[in-house]
Design a protein around this nucleic acid. Structure first.
Lengths: 212, 212
DNA sequence: TTGAATTAAACAAACGTTTAATTAAATTTT
DNA sequence: AAAATTTAATTAAACGTTTGTTTAATTCAA
């Protein structure tokens, strides 16, 4: 029956979600397969049974989570009714929301960008990032060509967008201290951070790109 | 004699330098004490003998490397002959050079910001970052008060500076691909990256702060 | 009755750390 | 200055855990 198949998939996803939390909190190498099995409430051997290995589990997680970002960017690019600057504003909104609602996964991507030792995972992350970057570059190139954007270093500007968002999403403790946000409420922290990030990035990019 | 003392300290520093390379490449948890001992050419037991533990070794490394940053920032702040904008330009030059000439250490600080499990290290990194941030904030506040800088979100702007620099220093492979820099020569990569980062950040901040 | 899901137990390897013995250097005593 | 003594540096080996993965037996569902 289809319910069995569903249950099977749900269990796989459940393990991945628990692994995601642990990887984000303690790092990939700092998380043991026993940790994952215990937190997911499954037997130790099930991780090898489902995923083959700890590394393959991470690959499965990345493939699961990174799937649908590119679709949104492509759609955004296709939309002829939006001006390049509109697209940048939507891009900022989208990225900020996406990262802040997926903090654990973003954390994992970050740590793997730094220290991935498996070349499969390196390549996987690289291809995901490059595909996204390519879509963003198109928006900048279009705006520049149409004379709407001032001439800028596009690659560096993309780095500024992603880097700024990352800076305070990497460590909640640090973000709360510097931004003077209440440390205790996860929810208020996220909404406050999202608001400030969006406002700041739009103001920054507007000035940088020379939008009136 | 003093030479003996020197040799002793040199050996400690040698171990720290080798550990730094390994931590940066494979992560703290991905690096074994045997790795470090082997790369440094010392007996395994010497790491415990000198540092007490692997974690204490990391603390020693951070304390060694993070020592003198704050001094430069304080000096920069005291200098009355510089305008706030001059200070920002020097700040950018200083940070870019510092991070690019200390990529492995910066990598380690980054990964520990993400996933440090020892609260001693968490606190250590937090205090280092906060002290630096405080000095940078003073420059922005001074410029704003004097009416030289437009009113901006200071904390977010600091995040933009640090985040932009981090973005392409995290992964050389990624940086080379996006920025179209030759992957094979470490030296040209560093100088090219430093040049572009400085130019971009100054142009960006000039527009953002409303400097004519 | 067949195949998949689940389990407890075991596996060898790698881990951080400690031990006890030995060598080298520094200090004190002759 | 030489010998004796104390302290520090270095070593190989072992410690007990923990690691990721596998096995072989068992339960469950088709």
């Amino acid at each position: 029956m289809s319910t069995d198949k569903r249950e099977h998939i749900d269990k796989r996803e459940h393990i991945l979600t628990e692994a995601e939390k642990l990887f984000a909190e303690k790092g990939f190498d700092g998380t043991s397969v026993r940790d994952i099995a215990h937190n997911a409430g499954v037997n130790l051997a099930m991780i090898s049974y489902y995923f083959g290995s700890k590394e393959k589990l991470l690959e499965s997680l990345i493939e699961l989570r990174a799937g649908y970002t590119i679709g949104i960017l492509e759609e955004l690019n296709k939309d002829e009714s939006l001006s390049p600057w509109d697209k940048i504003e939507r891009l900022v909104d989208y990225y900020v929301d996406k990262i802040i609602t997926n903090l654990p996964f973003h954390n994992i991507m970050h740590q793997q960008s730094l220290n991935a030792r498996s070349s499969e995972i390196k390549d996987l992350i690289m291809s995901i990032k490059l595909r996204n970057v390519e879509q963003v570059r198109k928006i900048f190139a279009d705006g520049e060509q149409k004379g709407i954007f001032r001439k800028i270093d596009m690659e560096m500007t993309m780095g500024t967008i992603m880097g700024t968002i990352s800076q305070y999403t990497i460590s909640r403790d640090y973000g709360c201290r510097v931004l003077n946000i209440d440390r205790t409420h996860e929810e208020t922290y996220r909404t406050e951070l999202a608001l400030r990030l969006k406002a700041h990035l739009k103001q920054l990019l507007r000035a940088h790109l020379g939008i009136k």
